[in-house]
Design a protein around this nucleic acid. Structure first.
Lengths: 149, 149
DNA sequence: CACGTTTACTTGCATGCGCAAGCATATTGC
DNA sequence: GCAATATGCTTGCGCATGCAAGTAAACGTG
């Protein structure tokens, strides 16, 4: 019985995530010219101390491989939203650091993110509902690195 | 205030989905030699009438493009889990239909899916918690086609 | 200090996916 | 009945991503 509920819940989470991504994808592309993952990368940087993270740390928080971070950072650096910053102590580290335009862009993107998020939970969601869902989901994501919230 | 909650919830859903996919991906690959999406495709077919769906219908339910379905079905057909079935009325339609081995495979995969799903919700989840989460998520996915549950 | 091991990053290759175009068939309007 | 349009599927192309291998630098152990 509980097994069926677990299966159902995981399926619904996957389904919801697909819908949300599809919704975000449209606005991010047309309004900011960025992909969902690029915006998430900026958001991770924005909440990090000094607005910078190493590539491996970024990879962990975004659940992606380090190579993907390398390749994602390149175009963002080219358009000036992030820059590369070496560490004086450890020459292996290459931080990805948010530039001022990048910080600005992140603020805008976060705003449209929030707007779309409220649209996902249309009218019939009370604050109590939202809080309850938040608490339940938090139990799933509590142990994950970089909560972004 | 509610806006922050909405943003937080969407972020947590995305995060949860990533974790779940990562968890499933490992077992599906090692135990059954299939990807997450391939298993989901089999599950969609298994719950469809006559265990068959047209490619566009499958695409809608999986939130993917029709071309992806075409390419995903090819290897599954090669290993005998699905087969192609033309429609006598409409020569354009090419159903993807689950074979007997495919149905068997789907049962096995669904079992490991359920096992991993219960593992996602470890110990501290009561049946009431799970039901509540299920209800809340259902409000997000209610209008989507092909619920799989 | 020297050598092996670990860590951070990059690059080559293969895969999965979407979009746009193409093709065949069905449906609609006249 | 025929042309115009719509629908279902496939294919070519490009992009994003993971994995494995390679490189450079830090660390540990003798």
């Amino acid at each position: 019985m509980m097994e069926k509920l677990c299966l159902q819940n995981t399926l619904r989470i996957l389904q919801s995530a697909d819908q949300i991504k599809a919704r975000l994808s449209g606005d991010f592309a047309s309004v900011h010219g960025l992909s969902v993952n690029e915006v998430l990368l900026l958001m991770h940087l924005a909440q990090a101390p000094l607005n910078r993270l190493s590539r491996v740390e970024l990879a962990k928080r975004m659940h992606m491989s380090a190579s993907t971070i390398t390749r994602m950072a390149a175009p963002l650096e080219k358009i000036g939203l992030v820059s590369r910053q070496a560490d004086t102590r450890d020459a292996r580290l290459a931080f990805v650091v948010l530039t001022k335009p990048g910080l600005e862009k992140e603020k805008e993107a976060r705003a449209t993110f929030a707007k779309q998020a409220t649209h996902v939970f249309r009218d019939r969601w009370t604050q109590k509902d939202l809080e309850q869902l938040s608490i339940l989901l938090h139990r799933l994501t509590a142990d994950a690195p970089g909560d972004l919230t």
